[in-house]
Simulated scan of single mutants.
Amino acid sequence: MRVPFIKMHGLGNDFVVLDGRAQALPALSSAFAVALADRRTGIGCDQLVVLEPSGKADLKARFFNQDGSEVESCGNASRAIGLLIGQRAMVETLGGLIEVAPSAGGITVDMGQPRFEWDQIPLAYAMDTHHMPLAWEALENPTAVNVGNPHVIFFVPDCTAVELDRLGPEIEHDPMFPARINVNVATVLDRSHIRLRVWERGAGETRACGTGACATAIGAMRRGLVERRVTVSLPGGDLQIEWTEAGRILMTGPATISFRGDFDPADFGAE
């Protein structure tokens, strides 16, 4: 059995998408996800995305990072799913139900409502997540937001100067974050524009992170640094983030199909 796949990306954050709604897929495992994601010996991607039937939405999406860990949500991949579906649809994820829809700016994803309580991030113990009394060298006083998956955000004068490749994994694996954490370093350029870099748990620094853009925008809005609709500029390009009066997070941006192909699951250790 050969399995078809679609290679996609959202602002350079790239995915291998497997559609299990109409055909059986090989047994999913961490080792299989790692093998497919390997950029030298596999297809290569930041995340493996698996589409499945759902009993509570139009479809279910599962997300696996390069290290094989399954995560709750992926904003850029959600836009890729929206591009594939081509119409408004509800998607079940481990992080909750989201809505995707085509829009003038590409694909808009309703990411739901942000969560701020310490045990919703989660943190190892109770503390104020708005101004956390923590520091890792010059990165200090972060805020934490869960937007389907957990993020910690540091607002700094120049995010391009942060040694994210060194500090990112240290913070990701800190015991303060029992489920690990996505690490965001952001610079507020003005009240409608944020520059952002993201160290994604299980994937490292990526060219774009949709949930990171959402979490960072919400964190900046809570601190009164920006308005309720902002542009977030990542290394791969721009996303538009809005926090509606109803408390919903709307993310709008592009998604692209790179190519299609197929593979033999046995070549990647699947049964």
Results as ranks from 00 to 15, higher is better:
Thr129Trp: 15
Met251Asp: 03
Leu189Gly: 02
Ala35Gly: 05
Leu94Glu: 14
Glu52Trp: 07
Ile257Gly: 06
Asp14Glu: 04
Leu83Gln: 13
Leu83Met: 06
Leu134Gln: 05
Gly12Arg: 14
Gly224Ala: 05
Trp243Cys: 03
Leu59Ser: 07
Ala135Arg: 15
Ser73Asp: 07
Gly96Val: 03
Val232Glu: 09
Asp238Phe: 10
Ile6Gly: 01
Asp19Gly: 04
Ile249Gln: 02
Asp46Val: 00
Ser258Lys: 02
Gly105Glu: 15
Phe63Ser: 01
Gly105Leu: 10
Pro133Phe: 13
Gly219Glu: 14
Ser258Pro: 02
Gly148Cys: 04
Ile6Ser: 03
Ala179Val: 00
Arg228Lys: 13
Thr206Phe: 14
Phe177Val: 11
Gln47Tyr: 05
Val49Asp: 07
Pro133Lys: 11
Asn149Asp: 09
Phe259Met: 07
Val71Gly: 00
Arg228Asn: 13
Gly204Asn: 04
Phe63Asp: 01
Asp165Val: 00
Gly75Arg: 08
Ala24Asp: 11
Pro150Cys: 02
Arg197Cys: 12
Asp238Thr: 01
Gln87Gly: 05
Trp118Asn: 14
Pro150Gly: 03
Pro102Ala: 06
Gly44Tyr: 02
Glu70Lys: 03
Leu25Ile: 06
Ala89Met: 08
Trp136Tyr: 14
Arg223Asn: 06
Leu48Ser: 01
Lys7Cys: 03
Leu94Arg: 15
Ala31Phe: 06
Ser233Gln: 15
Tyr125Asp: 12
Thr244Lys: 07
Leu123Met: 15
Gly106Asp: 12
Ile81Glu: 02
Ala266Trp: 00
Asp128His: 13
Asp158Lys: 02
Ala220Phe: 00
Val230Pro: 07
Gly253Lys: 12
Gln66His: 09
Lys60Ser: 15
Arg201Gly: 13
Ala124Asn: 13
Val152Phe: 08
Asn141Trp: 09
Gln87Leu: 00
Pro175Glu: 04
Phe155Glu: 03
Leu134Pro: 07
Gly210His: 06
Gly210Ala: 11
Leu48Trp: 10
Arg166Trp: 02
Val3His: 03
Glu99His: 04
Val147Trp: 00
Glu242Gly: 09
Ala37Cys: 15
Asn182Cys: 09
Pro142Asp: 12
Ala208Trp: 08
Glu227Thr: 12
Thr160Pro: 02
Phe154Lys: 00
Gln120His: 10
Gln240Gly: 01
Leu36Phe: 02
Arg39Ile: 01
Leu134Ile: 13
Ser73Trp: 05
Leu28Met: 14
Glu117Thr: 15
Cys45Gly: 04
Ser78Gln: 08
Met132Leu: 13
Gln240Val: 02
Gln87Ser: 12
Met221Phe: 12
Gly106Trp: 15
Phe32Asn: 03
Arg62Trp: 05
Glu117Gln: 10
Leu28Val: 04
Met111Lys: 06
Gly75Asp: 07
Pro26Trp: 02
Met111Ser: 08
Asn146Cys: 06
Gly202Gln: 09
Pro157His: 04
Ala24Lys: 03
